[in-house]
Design a protein around this nucleic acid. Structure first.
Lengths: 235, 235
DNA sequence: ACTGCACTACGTACGGTGTACGTAACTACG
DNA sequence: CGTAGTTACGTACACCGTACGTAGTGCAGT
């Protein structure tokens, strides 16, 4: 099984335990949890096969018995953190239910700031992603709309969550790979922005910042964007 | 200048040509163009300092005279492809103007499929990003809304563009790093999805795919999402 | 005109990465 | 009971970003 397959393979279709040979020392959940610990502590780029193996206490190449390629490790990680959602019985108010679900997803991504980078429709097949999707659909049970329309709504809600969280954490995540602090970086960048605006080449931005310079309320921005998406489906 | 700075620095604030020393052999535009060529041809992960230097025909470490860190190379790349937009005089119909701008951005990202991965508010300071923003604001000149509201609209439009393009190209980009073709990968993944749905654990998805199984019209999905965002600002 | 310094150019080297390959030990099935 | 298929893992390769040192170049100040 250590020989990498020459034909496509979905990791979820692989049996966790093969019939023959010694019993595996770790479960997929163990491996995902180890990788998640590293990513939470040091960022996604710090997740290497060597480090995950060390975290588990096994040789680097042993990991390849469980995970054929690093891509699959990412898939395990994303599924693992997608397993923490609560799915209360839908209330009948689909807007409130979707808002609650979106807030759960946003909170998850703030806990695991690498998750937005892994968000991809490719991973939409993982067990927990399917559960999430099915639950979101169940929130829309009473809604009179075609299936395709419901899926487009769910996709837009998910899109808002990941883009906004990605933006919210962008500078913080970036500063992980930089030799100076986030505050220093921000100060320099806004300083440059101000100098550019002062050139007069961007009059509307200049006027805008003069009129409305306050700090941004990220929670408010997110909630407004989410409500707008829901509005647009609620005619 | 080869000594990396210990203090934050925005590459755009660096003069292209220093007073002393030999005249630089390349411009920032040359370097960005070389990196863009590589990324277009082989994907973003193929963009390495060595390859860009080879493409330019100089030694690897010479690149560091122009680009203090690889992050800055990304910033140059993103700004370079953001320089290809056309900014026609706003027509007075702000919805049509923003739709046209969004379509330009979408087309750009389809030409440069690595661009969504680099999309980050951090790069919103680059010269061409500022031009883009100022133009989008100019499309909203006649609209009676506060500056903050206009910025939120523009952000949502940009968000829709990048998320949807990222989804559209996800499997194709992914297959670049995989030893088998996109079609093979897709076949296996949808096969697994079908097998999962057939378990009965996801009744709503099962019903949905039975009712509405057709292939997805990506252009239509994108346009509908975009219109919904515009609707939600158009009361 | 000359000196000095800031800059360009770039070879070498270090510590990291994903993973191909080979070998040894183990266990369930024929 | 053999043996095939698995687990375990050390070694090795190609590639990465980039620190550091050295050599050459041309403007600024004297």
């Amino acid at each position: 099984m250590v020989g990498r397959p020459a034909v496509p393979e979905v990791i979820w279709a692989r049996p966790e335990r093969a019939g023959r040979g010694p019993r595996p020392a770790f479960s997929r959940a163990d491996i995902a949890a180890a990788a998640v610990r590293i990513a939470d502590a040091e960022g996604l780029d710090a997740v290497s096969m060597r480090k995950v193996a060390a975290e588990l206490g096994c040789g680097t190449m042993s990991l390849y018995n469980y995970v054929p390629r690093k891509e699959d490790l990412y898939e395990l990680m994303f599924d693992a953190v997608s397993g923490g959602y609560e799915y209360p019985e839908p209330s009948g108010d689909w807007r409130a239910d979707l808002v609650a679900l979106a807030h759960q997803a946003r909170a998850m991504m703030h806990r695991h700031t690498w998750a937005p980078r892994l968000m991809s429709p490719v991973y939409g097949f993982s067990p927990n992603a399917l559960r999430y999707l099915e639950y979101a659909l169940s929130c829309l049970d009473g809604v009179d709309a075609r299936f395709g329309e419901k899926m487009e709504l769910i996709a837009m809600v998910n899109g808002v969550v990941t883009t906004y969280v990605a933006n919210e954490i962008a500078t913080a995540e970036r500063s992980r790979s930089l030799p100076w602090s986030e505050e220093q970086e921000n100060a320099v960048r806004t300083g440059y922005l101000i100098s550019q605006i002062a050139t007069g080449k961007y009059p509307r931005m200049a006027a805008g910042f003069a009129e409305d310079p306050g700090p941004i309320d990220l929670d408010g921005v997110f909630d407004r964007a989410l409500q707008r998406v829901l509005d647009s489906f609620d005619r």
